[in-house]
Design a protein around this nucleic acid. Structure first.
Length: 107
DNA sequence: TAGGCCATCTGGTCCT
DNA sequence: AGGACCAGATGGCCTA
């Protein structure tokens, strides 16, 4: 491979890295917006990416259930649906935001 | 100190 | 040829 070719490939890789970085920043911005739409949003105690996605999924599921049945569940049932499959830490945050004792969400 | 989370780099694949 | 997207690897930081 000629020196010129190697140089060209390095430049191309460097540009690709920059684009990839920007792409991931865009993805993170979108995730940040999503964080604001799910319960227990906090600027100081941010949920992890995976927990944000799981909570969003549960939240959508809860809201869909309310629309389908036309009945609003009690707070504990609502909170249990929201925290299904989430970490203990996130459960505590959700419980706090709904002014519930975290113990009420224990399995 | 181990495990979780994250940012970044990288090579592969697909599309224009 | 070059850009977008993706998944794996790696190293740094934080916390239980």
């Amino acid at each position: 491979m000629t020196e010129e070719r190697v140089k060209k490939l390095k430049v191309r890789r460097s540009k690709a890295n920059t684009r990839e970085r920007n792409r991931m920043h865009g993805l993170n911005e979108a995730l940040e917006v999503l964080r604001e739409y799910v319960p227990c949003y906090s600027k100081t105690q941010k949920l992890s990416k995976i927990e944000t996605l799981r909570l969003a999924r549960n939240y959508i599921s809860s809201l869909a259930g309310i629309l389908k049945n036309g009945v609003k569940p009690d707070t504990i049932t609502f909170a249990k649906t929201l925290t299904d499959g989430l970490s203990q830490n996130t459960m505590n945050l959700v419980a706090g935001s709904l002014q519930l004792n975290p113990r009420t969400l224990m399995p």
